[in-house]
């Protein structure tokens, strides 16, 4: 038995050493053709159905995604699709799915009775607008939605303040997945795809250190960041226009944010409102009152109800003008 094991071990070692030698010698003849780089698709894992408990309230939340990672059930016989993209303020993961504005809007539209509509919630916590753009291109367009709504200001301001450009972002909101070493990518792969639960569990109980941006106080947000922010929203608009999809941008409501961030958000909202982009100014329409918010930026059930009413009215008016 030991002899067989020994022979196997020697053979395996020789094979591996042989492979390594060939691998290292081959670049003399040719080098890799196929890129290791991939574009970050920020989405929830498709086809999930889990229940989790909110720490603060002990409330049980049923969490499910469809086969494209939208926070919806797969449904048949849908005649019209509306997609919402953005970060956690669209996602509303801390609320029961029936309390989210996307679900409430869907109910209102279906109560009108004429067309069976599904409102897809593509919000992913932390996503910026270019993350949402790639989701839109890769998995949104194929649904041929009638409307696409984008809500994205606060994450963008935060990230552009640190990195100045969407293409410079170097964390899990980056456009490309790889600027790291192969070994890092391999270990990261194991973490992301094989040991996801252990990683997130350790992270959620604060056993893993989180990266702290040392330059947090020095904002890198400047005129070029503004131009980039506006242009990315324009990309959404141009692509939607071309695919005959109505694009609507939603300014992001908040209860309270730091002064410096607030002044940037206000200036961006002003530019967007003055542009030709179709906008619903939720930031000014949702009162900055505690009764609508869970925390400083996330809406509660009451806030979601208000948002769904506002968007419902907007869709009705857009339908009437057609």
């Amino acid at each position: 038995m030991i002899r067989i094991f020994k022979t196997l071990l020697i053979n395996l070692t020789v094979l591996i050493v042989g492979l390594i030698l060939v691998e290292k010698l081959l670049p003399v003849i040719t080098l890799p053709v196929y890129s290791e780089r991939t574009i970050n698709l920020r989405e929830h894992s498709p086809n999930q159905n889990k229940t989790f408990t909110i720490n603060k309230t002990d409330e049980k939340i049923n969490f499910f995604t469809n086969n494209d990672g939208f926070l919806n059930e797969d449904k048949n016989n849908i005649e019209s699709i509306i997609i919402f993209l953005g970060g956690s303020t669209v996602e509303n993961i801390q609320l029961k799915h029936k309390d989210r504005f996307t679900y409430k809007l869907q109910s209102k539209l279906n109560n009108l009775g004429s067309v069976k509509t599904q409102v897809l919630n593509g919000g992913v916590s932390g996503s910026n607008n270019i993350n949402s753009l790639f989701s839109y291109l890769a998995k949104g367009l194929k649904y041929k939605p009638k409307y696409v709504f984008l809500m994205g200001t606060l994450n963008d301001v935060g990230q552009l303040s640190s990195y100045n450009s969407y293409w410079e972002v170097d964390n899990n909101q980056s456009i490309l997945n790889s600027s790291q070493s192969k070994l890092f990518l391999f270990l990261n792969y194991l973490k992301t795809y094989w040991f996801t639960n252990i990683y997130y569990h350790l992270k959620s109980i604060n056993l893993l250190p989180s990266k702290i941006n040392k330059n947090e106080s020095k904002s890198r947000f400047n005129d070029s960041s503004i131009i980039e922010y506006i242009r990315v929203i324009n990309l959404f608009e141009k692509i939607s226009e071309e695919f005959d999809i109505k694009f609507v941008f939603l300014t992001e409501p908040y209860f309270n944010i730091p002064h410096q961030e607030k002044s940037i958000v206000e200036s961006l909202n002003k530019i967007i409102l003055e542009s030709e982009v179709n906008v619903i100014d939720l930031e000014s329409l949702i009162p900055k009152e505690k009764k609508y918010f869970i925390d400083n930026t996330h809406l509660n059930s009451e806030g979601n109800k208000l948002v769904s009413n506002i968007i419902f009215e907007k869709i009705k008016s857009l339908e009437q003008t057609k």
Partner: peptide, 9 residues
């Protein structure tokens, strides 16, 4: 909940 990223572009 499972928050893994199973797909990329």
């Amino acid at each position: 909940i499972k928050i893994g990223r199973e797909r990329y572009i």
